[in-house]
Simulated assay, not measured.
Amino acid sequence: MPEPDETDDTILRALSKDSRISNADLAEKVGLSASSCWRRVRALEEAGVIEGYTIRINDARRGLGFKAIVHVQLTRHDPEQQQVFIRAVRHREEVRACYATTGQADYHLHVTCADIDAYNRFLEQFLFRIPAVSSAQTNVILRSVKD
């Protein structure tokens, strides 16, 4: 696929706002014929620029009102222990995202739970039971400015 151009960027912005938009409406929005628009979207998918389509869920309406960023430090950094940690967090529903980072913490987790009690259970029954975890510092999310 050639380098994405301004039209591709317009398509991507439109799809990121509403991934359920019909091809006809998308084509009209970006100023292309429906067939040309479909070919461009398909090329973006095949090139891996578009990795998939998803939905946004209102966590509060699902009873998940507690959100935090957890800064995790590991006791040691051997690859085997890191993989144990990574496999563990990948399978936890509470962990919405996990980032390996530079700086004081080794990983940053975006965690969502029902409430502080559920979060405490997450820490005690899961996170602190992973042998490689040395410590975790929590920053509670007060409100979302941009998702």
Rank of each mutant, 00 (worst) to 15 (best):
T112Y: 05
A132C: 13
A43E: 13
K29Y: 08
F85K: 04
E93A: 09
E80L: 05
F128N: 03
Q137N: 08
A60R: 15
N58D: 15
Q81P: 05
G52P: 02
F128K: 15
Q125N: 14
T138E: 05
E124G: 10
D117V: 13
F85A: 04
R61F: 08
V72H: 07
V84N: 02
V49G: 04
E51C: 00
S135G: 05
N120Y: 09
V41Y: 09
G52C: 06
V84E: 07
E80R: 13
Q81D: 13
V95S: 08
R39E: 06
C113R: 04
V30S: 10
A114Y: 08
G52W: 10
G52L: 08
S134V: 00
A105M: 10
R90T: 02
L32V: 02
T112D: 04
A68I: 03
Q83F: 00
R56N: 14
L142R: 05
H108R: 12
R62N: 11
A100S: 15
C113Y: 02
I57L: 15
R90V: 00
Q82W: 01
Q137D: 08
G31F: 09
Q83P: 00
R42Y: 11
Q104A: 11
K67N: 14
N139M: 08
R76V: 01
R92V: 01
L44I: 03
H77Y: 04
E124D: 09
K67W: 04
A88M: 07
Q73E: 12
P79F: 01
A118K: 14
G48S: 09
C98W: 04
S36K: 12
R92A: 07
